[in-house]
Write a protein that binds this DNA or RNA. Structure first.
Length: 583
DNA sequence: ATAGGGTTAG
């Protein structure tokens, strides 16, 4: 009875071989079965319990050949036709393969199909389904699946909850993740392990709560039940580096070495990245040597970090050498390495070299992405090469790269800044009519373009209508609007806007004050300018040197009043020397 | 032979 198959073996193998033809996947599986799902379920339980380990046929299912989604779907169909039916473990392995290819929706469909067909599901299968929901930013669906655990009498475990925690983190719901984590510990729902701690630690680091993450690491050490491992140390080290606390990161690094927790290439790459951002290149070299002495080789990631840092330090040629040296280690630059170097060339105005790299990418099997194009587009506009930029924009779309909000912003901004407001406006209205989402930066560029073109009325209108589009002006938008008002001599309105922005929860910055102060100075409303400078100083901002100069010149020319000079010294520390010299 | 955590670019 156990070995009984639902279809005669000959028919089964015929069905299996016919799977090479593309199958209309969705519904073919159900109709290919001779029994309705409830009966199948009845039988598959039997197969599952006794034949799974012993049947040599099952061991032959090869998941390593799955290269694309289609392969997996064919195999799924094929598995459904195998008799006896492959075990839950085999189906779970298939789901793993689909999930690893990031076909999350497909994976969920297959999971549901398993349910419909009555193939038994266990905590592993369900955790995969939850993981897929999480990657689709549907952690609530993940919690719904958690509910089905209980209905099926299956207990969720530490992996299930780690997955859900990760899902909350992915949706920027770290406080909820922390809350759930505490609850799990408090109510002893499951014993936390390294992975669970790792998830919560990384969530905290990603949201800038590095100190809380460090606390958790210490807590793990103290409790001693589950000791922080390489991943957790690396996560906190990375968090500290991102907070510019590289020395603390280095201290933690020494600590892990002292505790015999071996750093790996990720640990080193984070530290190298942190040191690079601080411009501590000598220590980077030391770190690379240190790495070598531990027989840890840099990977593509490490090189991307180094190439990027060298480019940002203006050492594009050294970056190029580093890029080329990857081949010696058998490493192949990826799109991120390319983008870093392209960015370097763009920043040093070597547009031909940047373009050459972009053209080289397809030859190396890499498809330039929207970021590759963004970097070059922005640079072309900055060099005033509008024609070349517009052509590249067309090339990009021809290459099938879909422009995003950033590209449109670069395009609009580039056109405006190059005095091609009319074109910018026509692109702008075209995008609007197509209903393409434009972010606040894009609107800000247009407002700036309108102001600079003397169309303050239109700028103001657009500015006032931002909220109707669901957009909030940011500090740059306000600064640009204030600058426009000041240029037209509408100082009182500019000052009103300064008050209004704060009321709207937008903090003014140095540029904000500088803009308005300059406006008042230009209109010779010195008293108001000085009042604003005082306010600015009280907030810990210092005036732009050019503003300070104007003030000093004006006041020195106007008055020799020592009290006033004293005031200048106080509020314009940058110009103190100049004042003293003339005394 | 089945699930879950850390590093990169505008």
């Amino acid at each position: 009875m156990m070995k009984r198959t639902l279809v005669p073996p000959a028919a089964a193998s015929a069905a299996a071989s016919s799977c090479r033809q593309p199958l209309p996947h969705k519904h073919s599986t159900c109709s290919s079965l001779l029994l309705p799902p409830p009966l199948l379920q009845f039988f598959s339980h039997r197969f599952h319990s006794t034949t799974m380990a012993s049947d040599p046929q099952l061991r032959r299912i090869d998941f390593s050949n799955i290269k694309k989604l289609q392969d997996a779907l064919f195999l799924f169909d094929k598995m459904l036709r195998m008799r006896p039916l492959p075990s839950t473990i085999q189906f779970t392995r298939l789901l793993t393969a689909v999930t690893k290819m990031k076909h999350y929706s497909a994976s969920i469909s297959l999971y549901k199909e398993m349910g419909v067909l009555g193939i038994p599901i266990n905590e592993y299968t369900m955790s995969i389904a939850i993981n897929c929901c999480c990657h689709l930013s549907r952690v609530n669906c993940g919690f719904a699946i958690l509910g089905s655990f209980f209905r099926r009498g299956i207990l969720p475990n530490v992996a299930t909850f780690s997955t859900l925690l990760k899902g909350l983190v992915l949706e920027d719901r770290v406080p909820e993740a922390v809350e759930l984590f505490s609850k799990l510990l408090r109510e002893r729902v499951c014993e936390p392990n390294e992975v669970m701690y790792g998830t919560i630690v990384s969530g905290l680091c990603r949201t800038g709560n590095t100190s809380r993450a460090t606390q958790l690491l210490r807590q793990m050490e103290e409790e001693g039940k589950c000791k922080p491992d390489t991943v957790i140390y690396s996560t906190v080290i990375d968090g500290l580096c991102k907070d510019r606390m590289v020395d603390d990161a280095l201290a933690l690094f020494s600590e892990m070495i002292k505790k015999c927790i071996p750093p790996n290439v990720v640990t080193y790459t984070s530290l190298i990245d942190g040191l690079c951002h601080e411009g501590r290149l000598k220590e980077v070299i030391r770190m690379l040597r240190n790495m070598g002495s531990r027989k840890i080789s840099p990977n593509v990631h490490t090189f991307s970090v180094i190439v990027d840092a060298l480019c940002k330090q203006g050492m594009t040629e050294v970056a190029r050498k580093s890029f080329d040296s990857m081949a010696d280690l058998g490493l192949v630059p990826n799109i991120i390495t390319y983008n870093a170097l392209i960015n370097g060339y763009c920043k040093s105005f070597k547009m031909d070299k940047a373009m050459r790299l972009l053209r080289e990418m397809p030859c190396k099997g890499l498809k330039p992405d929207v970021i590759s194009y963004n970097i070059i587009l922005q640079a072309l506009f900055r060099c005033g090469k509008c024609g070349a930029a517009l052509k590249l924009f067309d090339d990009m779309q021809a290459a099938g790269v879909v422009p995003d909000a950033v590209v449109y912003c670069i395009l609009l901004d580039g056109l405006c800044k190059n005095g091609r407001l009319a074109e910018a406006l026509s692109v702008f209205s075209m995008l609007n009519s197509k209903g393409i989402y434009l972010d606040i930066a894009a609107y800000t560029s247009i407002i700036d373009g309108l102001c600079k073109d003397g169309k303050l009325g239109s700028a103001r209108e657009l500015f006032d209508n931002l909220s109707s589009k669901g957009l909030m002006p940011d500090v740059i938008t306000y600064n640009i609007m204030m600058n426009g008002l000041c240029q037209e001599g509408l100082l009182d309105e500019a000052k009103e806007l300064l008050v209004k922005m704060e009321e709207n929860g937008c903090m003014p910055n140095e540029v904000t004050y500088d803009t308005v102060v300059k406006g008042f100075l230009k209109k010779k409303r010195y008293r108001e300018a000085m009042t604003l400078l005082e306010e600015m100083r009280a907030r810990g901002f210092s005036a732009d040197p050019s503003t300070s100069e104007i003030v000093v010149d004006l006041l020195l020319a106007k008055s020799q009043d020592p009290a006033q000079l004293e005031m200048i010294k106080r509020i314009l520390p940058t110009s103190k020397d100049g004042v003293e010299n003339t005394e």
